[in-house]
Computed example of a mutant assay.
Amino acid sequence: MTLASAGGASPAQDDPLLRPILPADAAKWLGAQAPLRLYGNTYLVGFQGLNVGLIRTDAGLILIDGAVPQAVHAIEANIRRLGFRVQDVTLILATEGHFDHAGGIAALTRDSGATVIASIPTAEILRRGQPAADDPQIAYGVAYPALPRVRGIADGTKLRLGATEVTGRATPGHTLGSMSRTWR
C-alpha cells in the first residue's frame, strides 16, 4: 500500500481534513493490514504500526482513535470490509491528543457524524488541534485539524451505547491526558 492509497487527498481534491501529516514518518506506521476481529465484538481497523479499534454494539459502532489524516480512507475501507457502515460510527473515543492518534478524527467525525469523547485535558488539545505546552513530547508535536466539539470526561466515567458500557480510565504518562477504556 502506498501512502496515497492510505487515504491522502490528491492535489485536485485538496481536502484540508485529509492533508498528510509528516508523510515520511507516518508512512512507516501505515502498512496495510486487513481488519481483524480480536474478540467478541472488538476489532482492529488500523495498520501494521498504528492501531485503531472498533467496538460493535447493538446501537452503533464505537471507534477508538483516528490515526493520521492520510489514513482515514483506509480506516473507513476496513470498517466497510467488516460489513459495517462508516455512518454507523456513533462515538469516537480519543486515547490521547498526539497527531498519530487524533489527526484523522476530524475527517472521521465529518464522515460518520459521530460524537468525539476524550479525557478533559485531551478534549482541550483536540479543540486546538495541537499539543499542550506541557506535553513531554512537545518537540514532536504536530498540528492537525481541530475539533470544535469534543466531550471531555473524567476518570471513571461510564458511557453506554446500547447494551455496551465503556469506562474511561485515566492513564497519564505518555501524555498527561491519556485515557484507556474498559468495556463489557
Rank of each mutant, 00 (worst) to 15 (best):
M1F: 11
T2Q: 02
A4I: 09
G7W: 00
S10F: 08
P11C: 03
A12I: 10
D15H: 10
P16M: 06
L17R: 05
R19C: 10
R19S: 12
R19F: 09
P20K: 02
L22V: 11
L22G: 05
D25S: 12
K28S: 15
L38I: 13
L38K: 08
Y39K: 09
G40I: 05
Y43F: 04
L44R: 11
G46L: 14
G46V: 13
F47T: 07
Q48C: 10
A59V: 05
P69N: 07
A71P: 02
A71Q: 00
A74N: 08
E76T: 05
N78V: 00
R81S: 09
L82S: 03
R85H: 13
R85C: 11
V86R: 06
V86T: 04
Q87T: 14
Q87K: 15
D88A: 04
V89C: 02
T90K: 15
L91Q: 10
A94P: 05
T95H: 12
T95W: 04
H101D: 14
I105R: 09
S112C: 12
V116I: 04
I117A: 04
I120N: 10
P121L: 12
E124M: 00
I125Y: 08
L126I: 07
R128P: 12
P131H: 11
D134P: 03
G141F: 04
V142H: 14
V142Q: 14
A143E: 05
Y144G: 12
V150S: 06
G152P: 01
T157C: 07
L159H: 09
L159G: 11
L159E: 11
R160F: 05
R169L: 15
P172L: 02
G177E: 10
G177F: 01
S178I: 07
S178Q: 15
R184C: 09
R184G: 09
R184S: 13
